[in-house]
Amino acid sequence: MHIVDGALSNPVVIGGAIAAAGGIAVGLKSLDLDRIPTAGVLSASFFVASLIHVPIGPSSVHLILNGLAGLLLGWAAFPALFVGLLLQAVFFGFGGLTVLGVNTVNIALPAVLAWMIFGRMIGRGSPVQGAIWGGIGGAFSIAATTAFVALSLALSGDAFLPAAKLVFFAHIPVMVIEAVLTGFAVLLARRVKPELFLRGSPA
């Protein structure tokens, strides 16, 4: 899902960088003294979670879990996921440098949207109901991420349209997996630590 350097047109790259800077600024504002450790540890856990490979048929996919990150972090998901992407690019060579802004927006904006739309539903009702909403949020954020990736490719030139479509359809199994896993993760969190989602606001 990472876009690499050189694939996008300049307006898309610059627009992405500005949007990412705005999102990060809003996210940083929401981080006060008490929330920095929480955001840091969660950012690290999502980095580790992306190492988990889940088998699907003969192949396997790695988790993204940006929906879950958004549900737990709210706007702070923007800087947290940016940090993850920065470390991946610098130390593992995934993605690129000039496209860091676009990649951050593509991953983090769906996370924030999932939080805005589904955040309140997660803490309500029975744990199973919360888990179902969590699953829908997880699928939504992956769908939105692939849509954003496809959009940034399509805005850069019509030649990318087939690739953009391919990206979207190739990620339908990923959406299902992410939905199921996010749902079960929420279910467990609701049972083990109910107060986590109770406030309807991020931890």
Partner: peptide
Amino acid sequence: SFGYLVGMMLV
């Protein structure tokens, strides 16, 4: 199991 694993890690 993986979902519970992720949930447990986050908690």
